[in-house]
Design a protein around this nucleic acid. Structure first.
Lengths: 197, 197
DNA sequence: CCGTGAAGTAATCAGTCGATTACCACTCCC
DNA sequence: GGGAGTGGTAATCGACTGATTACTTCACGG
């Protein structure tokens, strides 16, 4: 039934599942997502997902940690970018906006992790992740700037999580809010949305 | 089995359930919460919860709308407060912080609604709620100020949703972040946390 | 060519949860 | 005092879902 090409090394398959799970968890949340939907998104069977990660909870934890790592890496690249002569603040902002258009699932999964702070197993991972990102910001800016950056990030996360993007060009209040939030990077965002849609 | 005093007019009982559901949904999210937990939190049986609101989804929608209304009312009171000679911005900030310490469940439920933007029935309600709050802010401040206020609010929501408060006085980065986020209102927040704990 | 391990699935089980049904208790009014 | 409406529950059902089990297929080394 299964053709030769469907058999893939476990490490590679693992990455595929994590990627699919990021999208599924990002959209539906931890409790709302099912291992079967993750499996279907990854193109494999449900039992294989469970066997590879042990439990749904463990899968989510790995998704969450990978998510934080991806974000930090993206921000690090922006900080280290020698080519740009812009100051570090705008460069980081731009990097975050870039994540919005390319890896929306990552930001959504991050958000889904943050609101599970009460959970005895996932909560600590979420808090560590939050602080990892905050720490990275603190390395290159003041506490006040870092706080504002996080605040702006949480607003952006909320805007895309609530799907307010679908009301752009439809509700002028939404247009205004997006213009204010993304500033001169608004064009990038709109472009990214068109590409996904 | 049920003593006389447990029989309560439906309208009053309805409010009790909404209050309990706000706490439960706020902590566990929509998918993570069960109608049975809401029922237990309200001190009644599970079937009664379902019968009064029709479905779990409808209950959540009513919780979400009530949540937005409560927040807007609190902000309106702050705006209308003639006694204070502070400018409107700080007054609103103070009102929001006050919500953190008195009605944490409300803010958490709001957050839980926002991240359900993909849901065909709940999503529109969440977006309307977000815009209702944003609009209210726009009545009394510039678009840029309103955006910053929303961003700060989303950061505050995330901080309490992720339960980072439990690491106050334990991790100096957390202390710093909270100090920056709440500024001169930090004392109020800490006081409120002690009272709840 | 055989057997061993890796990749993967079908079938199924056990628990959970939202919803439904049928019923009970009390009050008020005629 | 009886029946009609209101406030409420116990029992249960059906669907869903995470996890388990047992099986299949294939590549490869000796």
């Amino acid at each position: 039934m299964v053709s030769k090409t469907d058999r893939i090394p476990a490490t590679e398959r693992r990455e595929q599942i994590l990627e699919a799970a990021t999208r599924v968890f990002g959209e539906l949340g931890y409790a709302g997502a099912t291992t079967d939907r993750v499996a279907k998104a990854a193109g494999i069977s449900q039992p294989y997902v469970v066997r590879m990660f042990g439990t749904k909870e463990q899968l989510f934890i790995e998704v969450l940690e990978r998510t934080c790592t991806l974000i930090i890496e993206a921000l690090d690249r922006a900080v280290a970018d020698e080519a740009s002569e812009k100051p570090v603040g705008p460069r980081i902002g731009e990097a975050y906006v870039h994540l919005v258009e390319t890896e929306r699932g990552v930001l959504l999964a991050l958000m889904q992790g943050f609101i599970l702070g009460h959970d005895p197993n996932i909560g600590p991972v979420a808090r560590r992740g939050f602080l990892r990102i905050y720490d990275r910001m603190r390395d290159v800016m003041s506490a006040d700037e870092a706080m504002r950056f996080m605040a702006q990030g949480m607003l952006i996360n909320t805007l895309i999580a609530s799907n307010l993007t679908i009301r752009i060009d439809e509700d002028e209040r939404v247009d205004e809010l997006f213009a204010c939030t993304f500033g001169d990077k608004l064009g990038l965002v709109l472009e990214g949305l068109n590409r996904t849609a």
